[in-house]
């Protein structure tokens, strides 16, 4: 996993100077600028993400919480003086207990949350990509008012996400919301959106799709610019239909970009905290909770349970890692490598 740190060239050339240095030196000479280009990013990520991440993995094997994390609890008195007492139940290594407790359902609703998360992720990403691709290919054509359409369609991205979440929550309000007003206007009974898990999840998905399509659209629009127009020209001369051109030129040309946005989109959506947290609040009765929001409520309400939170974090990480490796394999079979 280490990248730049794996480059031992400058320091280790000195002591040996036997058979190996020339190769290392050559490697250094050849690659130093590549390493130099990635170094700043790697340092920032190592400090801010990887240190907490590895610490999190370690914590998931302990029972550390906010209350037992220090060896002794000190009470300062306002009149001066500090009394320190040994923490009677200091944290300890507990092996796989956290995982057992989470996976067997003793704590939280891991399997239910995972199920909801998978549905949520799949539907959201599919809609993001489908709608984003459709809109991008329309907006990629020259036409009147193209700039205006582009700006209007991208606006949902420009509003701070939590404000949009409130807006959608208002729209789906069971008594005062626009959604039920429209349904009533066309003669359908109003829906108690948040009384049922599927309708509740539906409101969150609508919100998230609305929020996420502009990003997808812009990314794909950017990707379409790298497809040379000569290809389309040649295809038209050959008499290819619009669909054939889309299928055989646009889609393959978008592959590097769409591969990236689908992969990262999946990861982000899987961990998309604010929408569920704000729009459905997990209602009804926690049934529309996804893994991150469920883990947050389980571990961070009241005394914060860092080891439990880390356990969920590691489980989420594992699921996504498996997904990414699988995704890479599928792509590799089709000739893409990263």
């Amino acid at each position: 996993m280490s990248t730049v740190t794996a480059d031992p060239a400058p320091s280790s050339t000195r002591p040996g100077r036997s058979a190996r240095p020339p190769r290392l030196r050559r490697s250094w000479d050849k690659h130093w600028y590549a390493w130099a280009m990635v170094l700043p990013v790697v340092i920032v990520l190592a400090v801010l993400i990887f240190y907490p991440l590895f610490r999190g993995i370690w914590l998931s094997f302990t029972n550390l919480t906010e209350a037992n994390q220090v060896a002794e609890i000190c009470t300062r008195s306002i009149t001066g003086g500090e009394v320190c007492a040994d923490n009677p139940n200091k944290w300890e290594f507990i092996g796989l207990d956290n995982y057992v407790r989470v996976l067997t359902g003793q704590v939280g609703e891991f399997w239910q949350w995972t199920g909801v998360t998978l549905i949520w992720t799949f539907v959201c990403v599919a809609c993001h990509f489908g709608l984003g691709l459709g809109l991008a290919s329309m907006l990629n054509r020259p036409m009147r008012a193209r700039g205006l359409y582009r700006v209007l369609l991208v606006l949902p991205w420009a509003v701070p996400a939590f404000v949009s979440a409130f807006a959608w929550k208002f729209i789906f309000n069971e008594r005062f919301g626009l959604a039920n007003a429209l349904l009533t206007a066309v003669g359908i009974d109003p829906v108690s959106w948040f009384a049922d898990r599927w309708t509740a999840l539906f409101t969150a998905i609508v919100t998230n799709v609305w929020l996420g399509v502009p990003f997808m659209m812009v990314a794909l629009l950017g990707g379409m610019q790298t497809i040379p127009s000569e290809l389309y020209e040649a295809a038209e001369i050959d008499g290819a239909s619009a669909w054939q051109r889309f299928r055989n030129i646009t889609l393959p040309g978008l592959r590097p970009v769409s591969m990236t946005v689908v992969l990262l989109g999946t990861i982000w959506t899987f961990n998309m905290f604010p929408i569920i947290f704000l729009v459905t609040e997990g209602q009804p009765a926690g049934q529309s909770e996804i893994l991150v929001t469920g883990a947050y409520r389980a571990a961070f309400e009241g005394i914060r349970n860092y080891s439990l939170a880390s356990t969920y974090g590691v489980l989420i990480l594992s699921i996504l890692l498996v997904f990414s490796l699988f995704y890479r394999r599928v792509l590799r079979k089709q000739g893409e490598v990263w």
């Binding site: 209350a67 609890i73 300062r76």
Partner: peptide, 17 residues
């Protein structure tokens, strides 16, 4: 009580308060 149990607060006993 939560903050106090974590040692985040001054105990006020004996003060003017």
């Amino acid at each position: 009580p939560e903050f106090a149990s974590l040692g985040y607060l001054y105990a006020l006993d004996g003060s003017e308060l």
